Simulated scan of single mutants.
Amino acid sequence: MIRESGVMQVVSGKLHSIAQEMKTTEHINVSESGSVSSSDEHSERIEIRLDSCEVPCVIQTSRCSDLFIGEDDALDIAGIWRSTHIDIYGIRNLTDGSLYLAQPDAVESRKVSLTMAALFGMVFLVMMVALAIHGERDPGAYAALTMVGAVIVGILYILFSLRRWGLFGNSRISEHTQSGGRHELMQAHGALRITSGERHLITPL
């Protein structure tokens, strides 16, 4: 296999060893009232070594309890080659048939983006209903409201698309997940040749 830096490739072999290291970061939160609070974010840096590869395969995730692989398990790992290690984006355990896909930081934020869009949609509908209830008959008011709503939805869609494809990420999230976005996720999906019938077997990491 040709090892090309920065390219998604599959490395195969048997699990030789696995090591975990806890990572904790403290974040300071300042409210509008000026009060200060702190919160801790935790994740695990998991280092997998295969008998066929001299460099470790590494994944950073807060879902380490969902990863079940044992010594001598035959693995196909979809990852991107770096100078000192391989960033893991997908694992196929050939021994028990399980599948794992990493959730890069930009992909993990999709729930937040969709929630924001849904909330705005609800607010927009409430405003339209309120205008109708109060007997607003000016077509210009509805047209203006519709234009403003379309602009905001367009902005949310652009931001969602940028995060979805990993063009920018949330630093708080990215410290505890693999870098990238949907592009890397789909590359790993293709590299491991996951069929539609196997999608229910995928465990997110």
Rank of each mutant, 00 (worst) to 15 (best):
I173Q: 02
H27D: 11
C57Y: 08
L185C: 03
H183E: 04
T177R: 10
M116R: 08
L114F: 06
S62A: 15
A143G: 01
L99R: 14
V11L: 11
Y157N: 04
R92M: 11
S43R: 04
I77Y: 13
I158H: 04
A188T: 05
T146H: 06
L167P: 00
E71N: 14
H200G: 08
A141I: 10
Q178P: 03
C53V: 09
M116T: 06
L67G: 09
L192A: 05
L94Y: 13
H134E: 05
A74S: 15
I173N: 04
E32D: 15
T195Y: 02
L131K: 12
S171V: 01
S52Q: 14
T61N: 13
E26A: 12
L192F: 02
F120K: 09
V129W: 04
V126M: 07
S5Q: 01
G70S: 14
G34W: 11
E136A: 10
R92W: 09
M8S: 07
D76V: 06
I194D: 04
V55M: 08
R3D: 03
R137W: 07
S37I: 09
I91N: 00
E108T: 12
S35K: 15
M22G: 07
D66C: 12
M186V: 08
M8R: 07
R164N: 08
L15H: 09
E21H: 14
T61E: 07
S5C: 00
L101T: 11
L159Q: 03
I91T: 02
G180M: 00
R63F: 10
L101Q: 11
G181H: 03
I173A: 03
V107T: 03
H134V: 04
A143T: 06
T25G: 12
I77H: 10
E41R: 15
A132S: 11
Q9V: 06
A117R: 04
G190Y: 01
R164E: 07
N170K: 02
K23L: 14
S39L: 10
M116E: 08
E41T: 14
S5P: 00
S109W: 04
A19M: 10
E41P: 02
I173C: 03
H42K: 15
G180T: 01
A150I: 04
R182M: 05
I80G: 00
Y157D: 05
E47D: 12
H189I: 03
L50I: 08
D73L: 11
V129A: 11
I69E: 02
V58S: 08
M186N: 02
H176Q: 04
R163E: 05
F124E: 06
A74Q: 15
I28G: 08
G34K: 12
V11A: 08
Y89S: 09
C57R: 01
S12Y: 07
T61C: 09
A74Y: 15
R193K: 06
I194T: 06
R164V: 01
H134K: 09
A78G: 13
G149Y: 03
V36Q: 12
P56F: 14
I77F: 14
V112K: 12
G97P: 05
G181A: 05
V11S: 08
A74W: 11
Y157M: 06
E21D: 09
S179K: 08
Q178M: 13
S174K: 01
I80S: 00
I88E: 05
G197F: 05
I133C: 07
G13Q: 10
E54N: 12
I194V: 07
G197K: 04
W81M: 05
E71T: 10
A188S: 05
